[in-house]
Design a protein around this nucleic acid. Structure first.
Lengths: 144, 144
DNA sequence: TATCGTTGCAACTATAATGATTACATCGAG
DNA sequence: CTCGATGTAATCATTATAGTTGCAACGATA
């Protein structure tokens, strides 16, 4: 299957920061918390923007949530940053031999099962809102 | 996240062939149905062997199931060929800034959610036995 | 209006995983 | 003993990711 990139964890980190930070969140500020390069952060913020999860004040700087804490789920974030060509997390060996009755049919049978498994995972992700994440974070950090 | 390699689909293909084929399954024979190099097939069979899903007649040649059709699930196959270092399908950006209260705690909170999602997916995979797969394949191919 | 911090983006590098291929030692049935 | 098949190492091309530098453009603000 395809593995999740660490972009996903960074994206969640970004959204948590934006949600919790009382100060303006510049890419430099976020990069320091994530401990990486600001450009990496901007790239991911770009994806979150396309998904309309955040908006950015150009020139002035700073990233802000574009939706409520309850309207953003882990599934939204996943779809925003995991640019799976077709949306599938599974890769298939294409070009199986069409002359072999099994080679010709195995993919469709297997794919159906995989889509079911993927749906189950995405269903779980859809259950977790940014509000829940942030609330659990607050418990752990004491207070912010 | 991490993406699934196409090894997985090939492994399922191999097991289906071994289960259905009345003749001996050599890596050359399988490679033709999968439409790839025999060495690729042998590598994957090697993983299936380690997982004790199949055994191979060295010298003589041919791969055979080591367990019953009902005792092999898609989860078994997945675990046999997807060599995720730690078993997780999610990657995390490690080394977040420990000085930032969010950076210091986001990973554990996020990881818990991800493990839940992964469990849901694996649960689905565990529901599908090789017998079911083969049975659906037979329907599609008419008969073998 | 000029400045300065910030964003957006292209270009480049390094690294790792994957798939494919060649080559060859080894096994074991006939 | 022979011959087909397996097991495995070595190599290569491709792709994805993460990181980095450089720079144009934006816009708040002084």
């Amino acid at each position: 299957m395809k593995k999740f990139s660490s972009r996903y964890s960074i994206a969640v980190h970004i959204l948590s920061l934006v949600a919790l930070s009382p100060t303006s969140c510049t890419s430099d500020f976020i990069a320091e918390s994530v401990n990486t390069n600001p450009v990496i952060i901007r790239r991911i913020i770009g994806m979150l923007k396309k998904a309309e999860l955040v908006h950015v004040r150009a020139g002035a700087g700073g990233t802000y949530l574009q939706k409520g804490l309850d309207e953003i789920t882990l599934l939204d974030v996943y779809r925003a940053v995991e640019v799976a060509d077709n949306g599938d997390i599974f890769n298939f060996h294409d070009e199986t031999n069409p002359k072999c009755p099994i080679g010709a049919n195995i993919e469709s049978v297997f794919r159906a099962k995989m889509l079911q498994a993927q749906s189950a995972m995405e269903h779980e992700l859809a259950q977790v809102t940014l509000r829940q994440l942030v609330s659990e974070l607050k418990e752990k950090t004491g207070s912010i």
